[in-house]
């Protein structure tokens, strides 16, 4: 969004809110870089903070990336729920795959499936893709960003009858993520898609 001054002049309050949102979207990754620098040094001293600030500035100028649009909403409890479930899923997935690798009678039977996501936010789509890549038996093969579709490869799918359950588990992971940090728009989309699938089932 360029030319904030030349656009149709909104009310003063909304413009300052927009400016604050844009500032936060730049500031949070910046502070994340400083924090990473202090984590790598393993010390929380003023010296590490100051050198971190300088390096974060250099990195964000030299390796310029378009700003990430944050939703501005964060629910700590839901985020903990999402993280706990993610770790449990990673453990289950690792044990399953370790077992298929060592099982003498292993027979390959995989599937490629597509899942329609509710969100249109780039950040949430990325997080969902990463989370899905860690949970039981799936890897993201392709992402249709405009339509919000994930194409996944799933391991150990016995038959085509198991595919809907897998799709539901991916949608559930996305749902937990949206509830934790989605925008109001994503929440509305989520409610709409939930009521639609209920209507289809009933």
């Amino acid at each position: 969004m360029s030319g904030s001054g030349s656009g149709p002049a909104g009310s003063n309050g909304s413009r300052s809110r927009l400016r604050r949102a844009r500032l936060a979207s730049g500031l949070i990754p910046f502070l994340g870089l400083v924090l990473l620098w202090m984590l790598l040094w393993g010390q929380f001293t003023w010296l590490a903070f100051a050198t971190g600030l300088v390096l974060a500035f250099i990195v964000s100028v030299v390796f310029y990336l378009p700003a990430v649009r944050l939703s501005g909403r964060f629910n700590g409890g839901r985020a903990l729920l999402f993280l706990g479930r993610l770790i449990a899923d990673v453990v289950v997935a690792s044990v399953q795959i370790a077992w298929s690798a060592l099982n003498p009678g292993y027979r390959p039977s995989n599937a490629i499936l597509t899942v329609q996501l509710a969100t249109r936010s780039d950040l949430l789509m990325t997080f969902t893709a990463v989370a899905v890549g860690l949970v039981p038996g799936s890897i993201v093969l392709d992402i249709d960003r405009d339509a919000g579709i994930l194409h996944l490869h799933a391991l150990n799918v016995a038959s085509a009858a198991d595919v809907p359950a897998l799709k539901r588990s991916v949608s559930a992971a996305e749902r937990r993520l949206i509830l934790a940090m989605g925008s109001a728009d994503d929440l509305a989309r989520l409610a709409k898609s939930a009521s639609m699938s209920e209507g289809r089932a009933g």
Partner: peptide, 14 residues
């Protein structure tokens, strides 16, 4: 290997 896939939903797209 497409012979070990029970479903391939991506095929029609790419």
């Amino acid at each position: 290997r497409s012979d070990i896939l029970v479903a391939d939903d991506l095929g029609p797209f790419i």
